[in-house]
């Protein structure tokens, strides 16, 4: 759930916009280069953006008794690296801000910073870290685990950033920033935990299906790096 239209003071809204802009511009360049240099990836690229489109449209009930939605940015960050998701995530946010009155134009910078920038980078970092720790073991399970962690972290970190952004703008009258962070964290981050697990599982599912249907793509993208991992997969069939 993104910060609603007009719900950030304009100084904050402008600052987050300035912070996000370079990432989105850099991402747009990366996206253009990817489409021009590797047209064979375009279909998968479109599907990664579409995955984010689907997941951020699904409002799912959570253990806190409220609803929120996943972000779907982990998959694209893992497959195409985070800069490209800065653009695809921002497009999703723009669609929701313009047509659904969900999120907003004035809060687009702040929402892009959380969902399209920090989320993908944190998720990609978690994925790379998990891969480097688990890769030695080989087999398919480690890849699933790394993908799960990547998507889980991308989803959850997005809403942690949202909580920080709101706590900075609206500190608690008594306890200041920490009190407000606990409050907004309780609303966004706690709600998000089961959803982040769901997003992790769905992302694992997509990568598993991709390994069956288009292993060539995954090898080209460096997700399945060595033939050994692919061969391990043959055995488990």
């Amino acid at each position: 759930m993104h910060i609603a239209e007009g719900y950030l003071p304009w100084e904050h809204a402008a600052a987050w916009g300035v912070a996000s802009a370079p990432f989105v511009v850099h991402g747009a360049r990366a996206l253009t280069r990817e489409v021009r240099d590797r047209p064979e990836n375009t279909l998968l690229l479109g599907a990664s953006g579409a995955f984010s489109f689907v997941l951020s449209a699904l409002k799912i009930p959570s253990v806190t008794g409220s609803c929120s939605h996943p972000t779907g940015t982990g998959l694209g960050a893992i497959l195409f690296r985070p800069p490209i998701m800065a653009v695809l995530g921002t497009i999703t946010l723009l669609f929701q801000a313009l047509l659904l009155a969900h999120g907003g134009l004035t809060t687009l910078g702040a929402n892009a910073f959380s969902m399209a920038i920090v989320g993908p980078w944190a998720g990609y970092g978690a994925y790379r870290l998990a891969r480097s720790l688990l890769d030695r073991r080989g087999g398919t399970m480690p890849l699933d685990v790394a993908v799960f962690l990547g998507a889980f972290v991308a989803d959850l970190s997005t809403y942690c950033v949202t909580s920080v952004q709101l706590a900075l703008a609206f500190p608690d009258p008594d306890s200041g920033f920490p009190g407000a962070l606990a409050k907004f964290g309780g609303i966004f981050s706690l709600t998000q935990i089961p959803l982040a697990i769901s997003e992790g599982l769905l992302t694992v599912l997509v990568v598993r299906l991709l390994r069956q249907s288009s292993r060539g793509d995954l090898i080209r993208l460096g997700v399945v790096t060595d033939a050994r991992v692919a061969r391990e997969e043959e055995k488990t069939k």
């Binding site: 759930m1 609603a4 008794g65 409220s66 609803c67 929120s68 969900h102 907004f184 609303i187």
Partner: peptide
């Protein structure tokens, strides 16, 4: 099960 954004 209201939206988290409404609660915010």
């Amino acid at each position: 099960f209201a939206g988290a954004d409404t609660q915010a």
